[in-house]
Each structure stands twice: as structure tokens, then as C-alpha cells.
Amino acid sequence: MADAIAVKGVRAAQAAPPPPAPRRLRNGFAPAVPGLAFLLLCFMLPVLALLLRSLTQPQWGLQNYAALLATSTYANVLFNTFAVAGLVTGISALLGLPLAWFLAVAPRFWSQLVFGIVILSMWTNLLARTYAWMVLLQDTGIINNFLIWTGIIQNPLPLFGTMAGVVIGMVYIMLPFMVLSLRGPLAALDASLFQAASLCGASRVQAFTQVFLPLLAPGLAAGGLIIFVMSLGYYITPSLLGGAQDMMLAELIAQLVQTLLNWGLAGAASFLLLVLTLSLYAVQIRYFSPRRGKEG
């Protein structure tokens, strides 16, 4: 009975006249239209309009880009941006590797506990985390008080309002991303490789530098690239923990819009940030996308 209905259905479908509507409307594209229209109108159009403003304000031309690249204040901002992003990436890799390694090999209870803490810190509100570091890094804050109490230093270290503070606060935010991007590669490591290395007479240090690190290099590079790109455009943490002399690109953009109302220059700086971000993501997709990893 059910078969008969099914056959009838198929026959009915076969016998149905060819669709009268144009083919491109019947191929299932229609449901995407609301979302697509929304993103085109409320995302692409405003961003393109902003980039256009960099060419038209105050008048047509590339004067905003010339100002951005030639003025030493702005060059300094670019240097700070790259310096902070580079330091944050390096330190996150240095701390993230042992932490991810620990998670991969430690007894189940400890690795689950530590992983829970990593995720909890990552999911906690960004402002809550930055607030904690604002308290910790003050001249009379806990870190400085502790270091003075132990006698390591006599005078408080300048942490709050300096690049050091920005780097510490941002490593705190980025470290979980490094741990997460190393989890997959570490789980895929074959433990017997290290037995083989040991049988061939490799010491632990040799096994680490010649087998372990090369195998994890793609994971480190992928995680590092993500952290570097995110750090380049970071706004909140640098603006709360850094001083005026450590301004980064995103802070410059916000200041140009909020206090100087210089939309042309803000558009140019945005375009610069956008090009940097997109080209680094292109590298990411070209060399480190998970699909390629599976093929190779």
C-alpha cells in the first residue's frame, strides 16, 4: 500500500509539467535572499561607504593614505600595533605549547580540570577579565606589592598604562586560542613515534626538538596566525591597559571618529587594518585550513 502511494507519488512527479518559473528561481536559492540582502545592505554597503569616505574626504584623492603613512605619530601607532601583536603571539605560543601538551598527556582528572579553567577564562566577559588586570597591574596592585614584599624589587614596576601591561592582558585573552588550536595536532600525534626515536637512541631533548616540534609546527603556526590577526585589530584591552604613547591601530581609528571627527583618515586606517587582516586570513586559508590538513 505504502509502496503504491510512493510509486504514485514518483509517477506524479515525473508526469508533472516542466516548471513554469525560470529555473534559477526554483533551484533553492530563494531562502538565502533575506539573509543575503541583510548582509549586503547592513554590512557590505556600510563598510564600502566607509572606505569610500577615505578617498573623498575632505576632497577626492589619496591624501588620507599619504598622511597615514608619512606622519611619524601614525607610523609609531603602526609600529606599536605590530610589536604588541608579535609579542602576544610569541608569548602565547611559548605558554600555550606546554599547557596543551599537559592537557594531552596528564591524568584524566587533572587534564579535565585544567581544560575547564582554560574554557572558563575564555568564556568570561572580556571587560570582567580586563578589569581584573587593571586591578592587578596598578603601581600599588597585588603584583607590585607582592614583588616588593618578597624583596625582588624596591620600586613598583611600571605595568599599568604601559606596553608591558597591554601585552600581559592580551596574552591572558589569547592563550586559550593557542591551547585550542594545538589540541587537535597533539591528539593526532602517534605515541609510537617517540618510542621509535628512543629506540634509535634519541634523548628526550632530541626527540622534542627533532620529532615533537616539527610535527606541531603547523598547529603552532595556525594558532599563532589567528592570534596575530586578532591582536592587530584589538581595541578594548589596549585602550584600558595601555597609555597614550602605546596607542594601537584600532584605538587610533576610534579616536579619529570619536574625538577628532576625521572620517577620511579613520576610513584610511580602517582600510589598512582590513587589508592586513584579509591578507593574513588568506595565508591561513591557503596553508593551514583543516581541509588541506586532512588531504596532506
Binding site: 605558554l95 606546554p98 599547557l99 601538551w101 599537559f102 592537557l103 594531552a104 598527556v105 596528564a106 591524568p107 585544567v114 579553567i117 582554560v118 577564562s121 592587578l136 591572558y172 592563550l175 586559550p176 600525534l189 605515541a191 617517540f194 618510542q195 626515536a197 628512543s198 628526550r204 626527540a207 622534542f208 620529532v211 615533537f212
Partner: peptide, 28 residues
Amino acid sequence: MLMDFARLGWMRWLLCATAGACTLFLLA
């Protein structure tokens, strides 16, 4: 040897110390 917690030797102490410090850094 490197992926076996029991056979890490002296590296185990180093690993636990760094991981502990990182956890403290994240939790504090």
C-alpha cells in the same frame, strides 16, 4: 616517551610546573 605521562622523566616536572603556572595565571 614524550606522549606518555609516566615516562616523561625530568621533563614531567618541567611540564607540570609550566602548566601549573599557566593555570594559575588563567585562574587568579
